[in-house]
């Protein structure tokens, strides 16, 4: 599979009134055709800056960004506009034309590309159907809910039949239920239209739900890239650990007690393994934190447990989990 984007040693330094700020430091990564690629990091980490270099809304200071082997910084204004027809973008604030109807909004990219009036009406209607808003074509955006506005923005983004869809915090302004619906829609678009999707977020749940691979950006640097499952199971960088393992909400009952983390993926979500533990071994554990998800009936995530006091009992519990295909690691209290 070929690479859609290839970033090599990208630096971005903002200069304002003599002050300099380096928002991206030596970022190198590649994004494969057809994947859903997540970019996550804290606020101000440089996520938006990074994604904006992909369609050259942001000029890089150093390094190279290639789109299908085309060096973006070498493109002339007209060539860049041509490239942008195939890279759509959606935003946290939707950015729809408020004074225009829904269908006119969706038609914009086609109009820019010079498609005839009749053809673009047809295409726009088709796209509104994809996002489930065919009955809203003559409404104005002000009359729509946030979720509906983002659907219009997605329809608009799809209208020009792009190869890539960039999403900058596309679900951050929406509640969890609507976020879920929008993510399902993006997944469907990725599968049916073979569009490569790049998603920026500060929410791990978004990454978990639909991304194939994830990049973790920390203070302008690329902390980690990998398969979402891998990063979840075995985060390498501090930044990744912080995101994957949220700090314990509960204190252990015994400050010196032994804590373990169990990480599971590919486990039947319906399997009540804590109950099974109690049933088969008679041992009880104290759940200090849990971060679990079920995707398509498969559970994955992690839990921090406090083990019983007695060493023998501890071993029974640990071997029970191991025998059930869960990975177990010790939790070092200082690092939590």
């Amino acid at each position: 599979m070929s690479n859609v984007f290839e970033l090599e040693h990208v630096y971005k330094t903002y200069k304002n009134d003599g002050k300099e700020f380096t928002a991206l430091k030596d970022v190198s990564l590649s994004i494969k055709e057809g994947e859903i690629f997540g970019i996550i990091g804290m606020s101000g980490a440089g996520k938006s800056t990074l994604v904006r270099t992909l369609n050259r809304l942001e000029e890089i200071s150093e390094g190279s960004v290639k789109y299908y082997d085309k060096e973006l910084k070498d493109l002339k204004a007209k060539e860049l506009r041509e490239v942008r027809h195939s890279i759509s973008m959606i935003f946290q604030s939707f950015n729809l034309l408020n004074q225009r109807t829904v269908i006119t909004n969706v038609e914009q990219p086609l109009r820019i590309a010079g498609v005839s009036r009749k053809e673009r009406k047809e295409k726009a209607r088709e796209m509104l159907k994809v996002v489930g808003l065919e009955d809203k074509e003559n409404s104005f955006p002000a009359r729509l809910s946030g979720g509906q506005k983002q659907r219009v923005a997605i329809a608009r983004a799809l209208a020009a039949s792009p190869k890539v869809l960039l999403c900058d915090e596309a679900t951050s302004a929406l509640d969890p239920k609507i976020t879920g619906e929008i993510l399902d829609l993006l997944k469907q678009i990725n599968e049916e239209r073979k569009i490569t999707i790049i998603i920026i977020t500060h929410e791990m749940s978004v990454i978990e739900k639909i991304c194939d691979r994830v990049a973790i950006i920390d203070d302008g640097e690329l902390a980690e890239v990998g398969e979402v499952k891998e990063v979840f199971r075995n985060p390498q960088s501090e930044a990744a650990k912080k995101l994957v393992f949220p700090s314990n909400p509960f204190d252990p009952s015994d400050p010196d007690g032994r804590l373990i983390r169990i990480v599971f993926d590919g486990l039947e979500a319906s399997e009540p393994f804590i109950a099974n533990l109690v049933e088969t071994t008679g041992q009880k554990v104290n759940i200090l934190s849990a971060n679990t998800r079920s995707v398509g009936g498969i559970g994955y995530g992690q839990m921090v447990l406090e083990l019983p006091k007695n060493k023998e009992d501890q071993d029974t519990v640990v071997s029970f989990f191991k025998n059930n295909g869960l990975s177990v690691s010790e939790v070092n209290r200082e690092h939590e």
Partner: peptide, 18 residues
């Protein structure tokens, strides 16, 4: 006019006049 709307237009590959 919200800057975001202009940014969206730019991302669609619209010319300045457009």
């Amino acid at each position: 006019v919200q800057p975001g709307i202009i940014e969206a237009a730019n991302s669609m590959g619209a010319s300045p006049l457009y």
